[in-house]
Amino acid sequence: MKIVFAGTPEFAAVALQALHEAGFTIPLVLTQPDRPAGRGMHLQPSAVKQYAVAHNLPVAQPLSLRMDSKDPQRAAEAKEAHERLLATDYDAMVVAAYGLILPRSTLDIKPCINIHGSLLPRWRGAAPIHRAIEAGDAETGVTIMQMEEGLDTGPMLLMERLPIGPHDTTGILHDKLAAMGAAMCVKVMRKMELGVVEAVPQPEAGVTYAAKISKDEATLDFTASAREIGRKIRAFNPFPGAHGSVNGVTIKLWNAEVLDADSSAAPGQVLAADAQHGIVVACGSGSLRLTELQKPGGKRLPAAEFIKGFPLDGLRFA
């Protein structure tokens, strides 16, 4: 099969690599335009573009695929991309975390297959991995589905499940699901080649939406339960990084252990900050042992190392 691939971050690059190494012909790769990144804010290509360029795969980076955009530049680039797709010899498009909406004009050219990091219909939308951890889900997985105009509403072609471990962060789970999704996508495309793939409608019950993560969400409220806060810390690692404030200094919290013991201290109060007990903080119910922290301009450090340079005895997280 000849496959047009559309994707942007590392999650998508893993799938592109799997399809390419499996021997599928990839006549075109779509990815988002280069973005400023790093301290110098220099333009950086996406992970997908980096793989495509390294393996001499043709790349297009339109700002939009919507030819009806009110922005003249976006509309012009969308028209150019549409015409290029029409002129490209391909059998299906595979989409993974592309970041642009595929309009009906694109969906109608050839079948469009999406790699989605959740057990649909749970966690349709932009941030399924974060939201699954934040909600305390016991499992997640990958769904390969055929795309339609609705948000992740299309029929399912393959689904596989993965338990969420008690210490899994979004970063850890991302890598597991990226590898899983890549292998599943190759499997589905092989079935499409043979004409034996089966599409199953999504259940109507159990629909939830994974809204895009905002940086504001990463500010922790220590009046919440320790379990809830612990899930947020794991969900927002590595992005955007959960944090609290001590004496006006923002401290990022990268990892923590949930302790069930309640305390009469005010939420956010540091109950211990020493080599024997670690850094223990009171919450609305239960408490947290913070195990990895970072001060502004500093490195991520284990708790024992962090308190050497930033004593927390008697202080309180706000």
Rank of each mutant, 00 (worst) to 15 (best):
T153N: 06
T153F: 04
P155I: 01
P155W: 02
M156P: 00
M156L: 06
M156C: 07
L157F: 00
L157D: 00
L157W: 01
E160W: 07
R161T: 13
R161L: 08
L162T: 14
L162P: 06
L162W: 12
I164G: 09
I164N: 11
G165I: 08
P166N: 04
D168W: 01
D168C: 02
T169Y: 09
G171C: 04
G171K: 05
G171V: 04
I172T: 13
H174K: 04
D175L: 07
D175V: 06
K176W: 08
L177I: 02
M180T: 00
G181P: 00
A182S: 01
A183D: 03
C185L: 02
V186G: 00
V186R: 00
V186N: 01
V188D: 01
V188N: 01
R190V: 07
R190S: 10
K191R: 14
K191H: 12
K191E: 14
M192Q: 02
M192H: 01
E193R: 09
E193M: 09
L194I: 06
G195R: 03
V196E: 04
E198I: 08
A199Y: 00
V200K: 12
V200P: 02
V200D: 03
Q202G: 06
P203K: 11
E204I: 11
A205R: 11
G206N: 05
T208S: 15
Y209F: 14
Y209P: 07
A210L: 06
A210E: 05
A211I: 13
A211K: 15
I213K: 09
S214K: 15
S214R: 15
K215P: 13
K215G: 10
K215A: 14
D216E: 15
E217S: 14
E217F: 14
T219Q: 15
T219M: 15
L220K: 09
L220N: 10
L220G: 11
F222W: 12
F222N: 10
T223L: 07
T223R: 13
A226P: 05
A226T: 04
R227L: 13
R227W: 12
R231A: 10
I233P: 03
I233C: 10
R234V: 03
A235D: 08
A235L: 05
A235I: 05
N237P: 03
N237M: 09
N237D: 13
P238C: 06
P238S: 09
F239S: 13
F239I: 12
A242T: 02
G244D: 08
G244P: 06
G244W: 09
S245W: 11
S245T: 14
V246W: 06
N247I: 03
N247D: 15
G248R: 07
T250C: 10
T250H: 12
I251T: 04
I251M: 06
